[in-house]
């Protein structure tokens, strides 16, 4: 028995050494993503940050090469144009065949309105101006630069495109809903039932748009920043719906000359839950 114990201790020792080595290997795999303090600081309100990150070494902070699409939402402009937010939501949901199941439990949504307290629960609500509490905020997938959903997905059914868009492959998704637990913004919906079905003779998808696939039950879905339209040189549907109001500005965050970069430079903006290090690509002017 003593002999067996010695053998075990040998194995245990070797695995301990392997265990000590593992974090180093992991570090290399993650390409130095582990840094003590992000260029954002911890929990500060202003989102920007991607320019300050320069000189901090590759991969720290935001990615600076290539495209990274981002969206600025001007809440006041939405407030000045009643019905505009609803127009954006319909434009999106009609284009992408988002079903209207008709109950909260099975709800599927890509973009929707939230009051300040729920869109920014980590911010203080005490003694804020009354106007703020009457505003409604459009919320959607943040297309994080460091998306926790992509990290969690066991099949790479959700993944990040080269242009920073977090995409879904409806045909690979196994419906484990790990991504829904991982998303800190509640941006993901699951097809609890067949979205192509109907209730009381009313189909969940009122008019099917043949340009985009309808989903089957048992898969997760969310906003895709209209990746397909961007490829054709068009704007996302919600942005298009805002017309000339400038309530939404969309573009490449990595291009300093883009309109979105200029707007971010000249306005005070906030992101949702910046302290979590997800680096959202959606900004709010409040």
């Amino acid at each position: 028995m003593d002999n067996k114990r010695r053998k075990f201790l040998k194995i245990a020792g070797l695995s301990a050494i392997a265990g000590i080595g593992a974090p180093a290997a992991l570090n290399m795999l993650m390409k130095g993503n582990v840094q003590a303090s992000s260029p954002h600081g911890h929990g500060d309100d202003h989102g920007g940050g991607h320019e300050e990150a320069k000189g901090h070494g590759a991969h720290h902070g935001e990615v600076k090469q290539g495209k990274r699409y981002g969206l600025v939402i001007d809440v006041h402009k939405f407030n000045q144009t009643p019905g505009l937010a609803q127009k954006c939501i319909s434009a999106c949901h009609d284009t992408f065949n988002v079903p209207d199941i008709g109950n909260k439990k099975d709800e599927v949504k890509w973009i929707w309105e939230e009051p300040y307290t729920h869109a920014f629960p980590e911010h203080s609500h005490y003694k804020r101006n009354t106007e703020l509490h009457h505003l409604s905020f459009l919320v959607t997938c943040n297309h994080c630069d460091d998306p926790p959903c992509v990290r969690a997905c066991p099949t790479q059914a959700t993944f990040k495109n080269e242009d920073g868009i977090v995409m879904m492959d409806f045909h690979r998704c196994i419906g484990c809903r790990f991504c829904m637990a991982a998303c800190p913004y509640g941006s993901r919906s699951f097809n609890w039932r067949d979205p192509r079905g109907m209730k009381d003779g009313k189909p969940f998808i009122k008019k099917v748009n043949p340009e985009f696939p309808t989903r089957m039950r048992g898969v997760v879905e969310k906003c895709n920043f209209c990746a397909g339209l961007l490829k054709k040189g068009l704007l996302p549907k919600c942005v298009e719906a805002t017309g000339d109001t400038k309530a939404m500005v969309f573009g490449d965050l990595n291009d300093p000359a883009s309109e979105v970069s200029k707007v971010l430079k000249s306005h005070f903006t906030i992101q949702r839950k910046p302290a979590l290090g997800t680096k959202p690509s959606v900004f709010y002017i409040i």
């Binding site: 997905c153 099949t155 690979r172 196994i174 484990c176 699951f190 039950r217």
Partner: peptide
């Protein structure tokens, strides 16, 4: 786990597309 999957028929995707950054892969 199988009863909880929305698309149980695709369960083997976890093996077909191994994803080391997902904890579910390691749990499997």
């Amino acid at each position: 786990i199988m009863t909880d999957l929305g698309q149980p028929i695709r369960a083997l995707n976890v093996v077909l597309h191994p994803t080391p950054h997902s904890i579910l892969f390691w749990d499997m």
